[in-house]
Design a protein around this nucleic acid. Sequence first.
DNA 1: GCCGTTTTCGGCCCGACTGTTTTCAGTCG
Length: 567
Amino acid sequence: MLNKKIADIFYDIADLLELEGVDFKPRAYRKAARKIEGMKEDILDYYENDELREIEGIGKAIEEKINEIIETGGLEYLDDLKDELPEGLIDVMKVPDIGPKKAKKLYEELDITDLDSLKESAGSGEIREIKGFGRKTEDKILRGIDMLEKISGRHLLNEVLPLADSLIEYLGPDAEMIEKAGSLRRLKETIGDVDILASGDTSKLMDSFSNYADVDEVLVKGETKTSVRMEGGIQADLRVVDKESFGAALQYFTGSKEHNVELRQIAIDQGYKLNEYGLFSKDDEKKVAGEDEESIYETLGMDWIPPELRENRGEIEAARNSELPQLVEIDDIKGDLQCHSDWSDGVNTILEVGKAAQEKGYEYIAITDHSESLTVAGGLDKQEIQEREEEIRSAQEELDIKLLSGIEVDIKKDGSLDMDHETLERLDIVLGAVHSNFRMEAEEQTKRITDAFSTGLIDIFAHPTGRKIGEREPYKVDMREIVKSARENSVVLEINASPQRLDLDSLDAREAKDKGVLISLGTDAHGLQHLDFMKYGVGIARRGWLEKDDVINTLSYDELIDFLKGR
DNA sequence: GCCGTTTTCGGCCCGACTGTTTTCAGTCG
């Protein structure tokens, strides 16, 4: 989509300008990028109607740049910036604790131009010799690079899933059957590459696939498999199989590897052989199943296992005993329990958020703006919360769904809450969250959080580990203690559905469920398009074995209000 | 670079923390 492309260009410009030490411009470009990225409308419409300037954050200069991008496909200004400083420095800045100043200094002093040269220099110990740097910084750089490498080559769900869906739609007419496979079908938090399985006219499918508009380069093109690299560096594989083997291939290519190893062993034990072509009897090599997945699982004496559970974490045994959970589904979700309005750092008005939620068919949505101490996000004080109340009331009059007046209140370093208790008690819903002092020791951090729980004022603990995938490690915390305290204080733990958070992760979510703690799903939307993140949260919930009753978003509005009042 | 108006340029979010210093710069949220 063009909005995304333009936004990405502006983000790059902002980074490069920051490296040059330019003031304020980066902020202007980021603001414009965020606005464009978050718009529901196609920016092309604004361009065609000559209305770009009406978008907040777009003035004369940025309008001209958008025109240039639309008309020429590129932007000279960005090319010039890249000539002045190596593009790889943008990656260097992704290492925690390296910002524009340090990145530029590393470039000037040690000729570090990208992550590779940074790693080399940090490893050789020459970074600590630079003024302003030291041993600790050097260590931290090495650890930071490690983290980045761990997810390098992997992509967030929200980058990959829409891409896979449009590919499937595009290939659909040529295919008799077509499905996502791999970690994408299992809805894993990060995705290596896009796996698509199809049956139909092989050569036609392969040709269509390699001629897809977003394909940058065809890597492999063969009889059964074609691999391409798409715009943005994501690799996509298309495999074509016979219709008779589709189920077996889908099972095989969905994985996980661990699940498949276990399943194949079970097949052997029962006198079968399982591979991507089917389930075969060992005696006469006759195919006994394979056209669909269900027949394979059934023949092996178990229920069909939803892809999200296929991690060899007990699902096979449960399937054999017909004890698989009835996993929560997206259609069970009646509302979104974390989102931000323009009262804090969201881009949309409360009414806009409410209308969008209404269009999604929700019964309710919680407006949970930040509290005062999160100044970067324009957090609200007591007075502003009261003023916001007015707007919520008037928005409510125009809506068929219910707005919950809420807050995402900061849990301060000492475990106290960043808002007076009377105000919190008056609100419909209170999310507590940690946004500062990430580096406390586990014991201290845990106490901070459990102390906050014991105020009795927190309904939901938001993004419980604070991780940002590929950007920030979770803070150190004793999750078992948190879960225990949540149970004791009737605090609900959130699965934050934002694809870069997905926090709790599926393992912690399952642990919470096992200990009798309820889960809430919140998209943490800062723009309307983020409301669509709910499906990723549901994915994590499913991977965490959660059922409808484990998730409070499945409650009707009345039930939810009763629950919040009664807890 | 945008915005808003004191209509022509000044203000733009800023406090906490860390690691490096020896009183502060850089990063982060």
